[in-house]
Design a protein around this nucleic acid. Structure first.
Lengths: 183, 183
DNA sequence: TATAACATGTAACTAGTTACATGATTGG
DNA sequence: CCAATCATGTAACTAGTTACATGTTATA
């Protein structure tokens, strides 16, 4: 499904594989990410399928690069995907919950230490949503007032991340409390 | 990582691939699931690696079955995995957020309709956490009082699901409100 | 008599990860 | 001179999905 992330970004601007990676790292990273290698592979497949086209670009003081652009066929595919409503919840895999599910045999202090470390990580993540993310959104929003609806969508996904981290921390506090009292 | 789910369940009891599928569907389904075909494939690989052993069992009025048991080597692998603390957050892929991120070009009513449908789905899921899940946990907990710590872990994962759905619904209400007012 | 539950598997495919491989330019 | 950034790719692998293939027994 990286396919749609790439089409979505190319729908704004032409970009190289390298730039797409950077863009994703700065915007969709908390709900969609990809390795550089997968991006190049997927771009190749998209071009073979006619959803994007590319041309090499020579640069003076930097390595040459290959710039990708979305085609009409690519735009059509993207629109079709966006228009298709979600009719069932996609099940969500959480390795940490799987681990916890089977952790009844661990020692009390081992468990508490692990959960407290995890809490610290989620607090850091929450900070990121409150500082870094809004900057990225404002920066892109002000440069083009026609993007105000897009900015609303971006802000909504950022807000999800924030609420998710808050919920996660609340849950950890509850779980830590339960283990401290009854384990 | 299905590997560890299977080892975890076999650590309680010997089971067939069919039973493992049922058990997962009834317990870990909201944070870890697998298709029947993947379960059979993974069991084969686990046996080749010496982490489980199996033997066929003849049955009178039902098809024969193959029962799997965890080995010492399998228990060691499971313990090693449980003991290894989480030191970084695993990035979480959410297709819905990816879609929303690029949905600024959709019509207002289309978007609102899709989000309201999604809200209904999450409300249904929340109901499941409040009704079905506790039954499963109590049922297994009362049959063996030595499992009380395990039951705590199971309840904790159920509670995560509940809090997650509540957060999701709150976020949807906020997002729907924002779109209704400013889109 | 039909359908749900029991029961096991293989083949082909899609998605994503890890490791390898190369090389230029800029800034400290 | 060393690290970071720019820039692109391939090969091998792991994880998971979809489709196919088969057959029995209990129950409504």
């Amino acid at each position: 499904m990286l396919k749609y992330a790439l089409l979505g970004f190319l729908n704004y601007d032409n970009k190289t594989g390298y730039e797409l990676k950077q863009t994703m790292d700065r915007s969709t990273n908390h709900f969609w990410h990809a390795k550089q290698s997968q991006i190049y592979q997927t771009l190749k497949r998209l071009e073979a399928d006619g959803l994007v086209v590319s041309h090499p670009e020579h640069q003076e003081s930097r390595p040459d690069r290959r710039v990708y652009a979305i085609t009409d066929s690519g735009k059509k595919a993207m629109d079709a995907w966006l228009a298709k409503p979600v009719t069932a919840l996609e099940p969500n895999k959480q390795l940490l919950l799987l681990k916890l599910f089977f952790s009844g045999g661990l020692g009390k202090e081992t468990l508490l230490t692990q959960l407290r470390l995890l809490r610290k990580l989620h607090e850091q993540q929450l900070d990121l949503y409150n500082t870094e993310s809004p900057d990225v959104i404002k920066q892109h929003g002000k440069s083009d007032p026609e993007l105000s609806r897009d900015v609303m969508m971006w802000e909504s996904t950022r807000r999800f991340g924030e609420l998710h981290e808050k919920m996660y921390i609340d849950w950890l506090d509850e779980t830590i409390g339960m283990i401290a009292a009854h384990f």
